[in-house]
Write a protein that binds this DNA or RNA. Structure first.
Lengths: 152, 152
DNA sequence: CTTAAATACTTTGATAATCAAAGTATATAT
DNA sequence: ATATATACTTTGATTATCAAAGTATTTAAG
């Protein structure tokens, strides 16, 4: 691994650790002390707009549906999310956010927007394209890795 | 949030989730079934070269020393790490990797090198500089955010 | 139509990672 | 010599996670 690769690698590791910690603390110390970072990510995966089924949300988060059931129980209890039965297929549970849940969603979006802005504000438009290209390429690489392992 | 910001944001979230899952499974399904991704990160933080104190490793990982004590107990039990007493200050515990621990370290480094390579191989040298600039800027932003919250 | 198989979710029991607070041993300062 | 600070460990509680078993509903097969 050459020096430059190494530097980029160290940046990624450091950024990864920092994001984990900052996200966790932002909520624990703020207005919404009762919501963990994992719960915020679940709220993010449920989304603001259409209702999503348990299976869909679990797939997005790459967790089992059983884990999501437990998480959903807590989110419902705390008043961030709601369960709905699908009319067309009564086995299916649809999830949606409450007003309080949508507030968390917006706060978290803002944090993410800040992250992106901190990177892009020092770059020109052309440079932003390059950043996007690099991230896309990483994403494709990871998807191949993930799905080839699971032979899907 | 404009469309471009949004796309970069979605890429980051998706990459983040994928890395978490892939890292976890790479070890769980491979040769070293008894080591979790958190343990791999601890091994990474201990490092290949000089010994590191408990406090140093905990600070790198942004976890409490108590949590690290528990983690270290397990790593020692499984034969990945070793505890040493500092001669100069007998309160201090130094951590180092065993042969088996260093093997994990190298495997994990390889995974990270692949990540970086997947991004950089489609970029020119100048473009890699831009990527590095963007990541550095994000890193600085996160550090400011982290340390200003803790008022250090 | 009835039954079997598949699907969508929930429940349960076990394990890992985490923190805060209390405890132990050693070092430093008064 | 004693008090305070530091470095670590232990303990008790909480959260996130999975696999496996269980429930309800739908789809397929006979």
């Amino acid at each position: 691994m050459d020096e430059r690769t190494n530097l980029i690698n160290e940046l990624i590791v450091d950024i990864y650790n920092d994001i984990m910690k900052i996200e966790g603390e932002a909520f624990r110390t703020g207005q919404f002390k009762d919501v963990s970072i994992t719960e915020v990510h679940t709220i993010e995966a449920i989304g603001m707009f259409e209702l999503k089924s348990m299976s869909e949300v679990a797939r997005t988060l790459r967790i089992t549906v059983g884990t999501l059931t437990v998480a959903t129980n807590n989110l419902v209890k705390k008043g961030y999310a709601q369960r709905y039965r699908s009319e067309s297929d009564r086995r299916v549970v649809k999830l949606g956010l409450t007003k309080k849940g949508r507030l968390i969603f917006r706060m978290h979006s803002k944090f993410h927007a800040e992250l992106v802005k901190s990177m892009t504000q020092i770059l020109t438009d052309d440079e932003i394209d390059i950043l996007e290209k690099a991230l896309s390429s990483l994403n494709v690489f990871l998807k191949n890795k993930y799905f080839s392992e699971k032979s899907e």
